[in-house]
């Protein structure tokens, strides 16, 4: 690990200003992803601003009947919150489908959104990787790509966003609240938060340098049956090959987002109109333009079958 200086944040705006003022500075909260990457020197911040000191660890009702989740609410606490379990079950389900108990105790809501890809070539510092070292090439394209993306990828990068929580946030139409180094605040719809890789795969999100996530808000509950179905190589503690977050109403209408296949939680609102007709009707529109590799072309039928299983489960529950 490279040496770094360290300070504890005194306020969200001061933390944002401190990171913006120092090239190579980063925030640290749970640290479960950042420290892993720092040990491998994939990340090498020269200065860390510890935001754990900030009072951003509450879950509170909003004026519009939703919930505001503080950036520092730990994954365990978010999943266990009675309001989340009752009104936003897909979120609890997604969180407990990810990582391990130890990691969920430490990992934060904001940090979970910011976790970086688990592409094996991103982690292998002997390999070219446009995400780790811009312009160096992509070893995943033409390499072993079973886990990697099938849609929204580019000629520069086929990595996926690896998380579960954000897939549920996407189907719930969450909004990310931030503070900028100037002290100004901003609200970013979750759909605009993560980027498609394009030719700048080293930039994961649309946050500006120094911009700090302060909360994630959820709109008023929409009812329905909440399901998170994760398909993976082990029964526990493994990244998704494909995951489906769904909210399905009694009449068969609903919302659905897919994890494990793209640079961001993948949702196509226009495809959702076909949900009452079943997975076969939805999937072609959901995955229009997909460019799977030889290794991961199985994910296309896997999305359809996982979605079919979810819709069947929703029908049983209704």
């Amino acid at each position: 690990m490279k040496a770094f200086t360290y300070e504890r944040a005194t306020s969200p705006a001061a933390a944002a200003a401190a990171v913006a003022a120092r090239p190579g500075a980063k925030f640290i909260a749970g640290g479960t992803n950042l420290l892993d990457l720092m040990k491998l020197e994939i990340e090498a911040p020269v200065h860390l601003v510890d935001v754990n000191t900030l009072s951003l660890d509450k879950i509170e009702p909003t004026d519009s009947g939703g919930l505001r989740i503080g950036a520092l609410v730990r994954n365990t606490d978010l999943a266990a919150d009675p309001r989340v379990r009752r009104d936003y079950g897909v979120l609890t389900r997604a969180i407990v489908a990810g990582a391990s108990g130890q990691l969920r105790n430490k990992a934060t809501t904001a940090g979970n959104l910011l976790q970086r890809t688990r592409c094996p070539y991103f982690y292998d510092t002997n390999q070219p990787c446009n995400k780790r070292k811009p312009g160096s090439g992509c070893a995943a394209i033409g390499g072993y790509s079973r886990q990697l993306g099938i849609i929204g990828t580019s000629d520069a990068c086929i990595a996926t966003y690896p998380g579960d929580m954000a897939v549920a946030m996407r189907v719930l139409d969450a909004t990310v609240e931030t503070v900028q180094p100037s002290g100004a605040t901003r609200r970013i719809p979750i759909t605009d938060f993560h980027r498609l890789w394009g030719d700048t795969p080293h930039i994961d999100t649309n946050l500006q340098p120094g911009e700090l996530i302060t909360a994630v808000t959820l709109p008023k509950p929409v009812g329905g049956t909440h399901i998170y179905h994760k398909v993976r190589d082990r029964a526990s503690y493994a990244y998704a090959l494909v995951s489906v977050a769904a909210i399905v109403q009694r009449d068969g209408s609903g919302h659905v987002a897919i994890g494990g296949i793209a640079p961001k939680p993948w949702r196509v609102e226009a495809a959702e109109a076909a949900l009452p007709q079943g997975a076969k009707a939805v999937t072609p529109r959901l995955l229009a333009g997909a460019r799977p590799t030889k290794d991961n072309s199985f994910k296309v039928p896997l999305v359809e079958r996982t979605l079919a299983a979810v819709l069947a489960q929703a029908k049983d529950a209704a």
């Binding site: 490279k2 040496a3 770094f4 200086t5 090239p23 190579g24 020269v46 080293h202």
Partner: peptide
């Protein structure tokens, strides 16, 4: 900007 990370003197 993302590439500018002047290292500490290690």
């Amino acid at each position: 900007a993302e590439a500018q990370t002047p290292p500490l003197d290690q």
